[in-house]
């Protein structure tokens, strides 16, 4: 039923394209539609809505971005049908800088005040998260840089989630339903740290193992898809 695998609606924020179960077919159908009325779509922004259970993979993302780019449509947001945002691409200008591997979202970008990234799964930021920026993930969060803004791991309730950063000086940390704000004395952390939920709320500890690892190790681990433990 190809006609049903895709629904396109206009909205204030751009065109909303809703995919149903057969994603492969939907992308092909979308490609045809875009090609058939280039004048209508060209220059617009798209919000892609995916079925709840669909697992986003890098390959899919690459194909989707390609199909949209061919018709001068900008991917503005990727989200699930129940409206949890997966990626807001407005934050990430170049699609090469976002990726998904083994369910881990990684973003290479300095996040500035007002930026917000939400990930359905584990989230890795290569760059600083400045004060006023926010990173939210249903899984773990790793910031390869300074975490100065707000981070919320386990956003749908997973209290086993962790937040790691090379410099963990967040305005506020949240794990599951626990909240901890920056201490008033603003001491500078000595090295990479990890936050987790302990018996009395969020605790922050040295992230010892990582200190001994050289930086490229981490990137090999993620980008070339080896087993990842956040």
């Amino acid at each position: 039923m190809p006609a049903n695998s895709l629904r396109i609606k206009g909205s204030k924020n751009g065109i909303v394209i809703e995919f149903e179960e057969d994603i492969g077919q939907a992308v092909t159908l979308l490609e045809d539609k875009l090609k058939n009325s280039p004048a209508f779509f060209s220059g617009s922004e798209a919000i892609i809505v995916l079925p709840e259970t669909f697992i986003v993979e890098e390959q899919f993302l690459a194909r989707l971005t390609q199909v949209l780019a061919n018709s001068q449509v900008k991917l503005r947001e990727l989200r699930r049908v129940n409206s949890t945002t997966i990626i807001e691409t407005e934050i990430i200008k170049t699609p090469e800088k976002i990726g998904v591997e083994q369910g881990i979202f990684w973003v290479e970008k300095r996040l500035r005040s007002g930026d917000r990234i939400t990930a359905d799964g584990d989230l890795v930021i290569v760059g600083d998260v400045n004060p006023g920026a926010e990173v939210v993930a249903t899984g773990n969060i790793l910031v390869w840089g300074n975490l100065l803004g707000v981070a919320h791991a386990g956003s749908d309730g997973n209290e086993k989630s962790r937040i790691r950063a090379l410099r963990l000086q967040a305005t506020q940390l949240r794990i599951g339903s626990h909240i901890s704000r920056a201490p008033d004395d603003l001491s500078t952390p000595q090295g990479p740290e990890v936050a987790r939920v302990g018996p009395n709320g969020i605790v922050i500890e040295a992230w010892e193992k990582l200190v001994t690892e050289p930086l490229p190790f981490w990137r090999r681990l993620f980008i070339h898809g080896r087993e990842v433990k956040l």
């Binding site: 407005e90 934050i91 200008k93 500035r112 005040s113 007002g114 930026d115 004060p131 006023g132």
Partner: peptide, 13 residues
């Protein structure tokens, strides 16, 4: 500084 950071982000986008 915080607001400037936001503007840098907006200019970039």
């Amino acid at each position: 500084v915080r607001d400037a950071d936001r503007v840098v982000g907006l200019l970039d986008k």
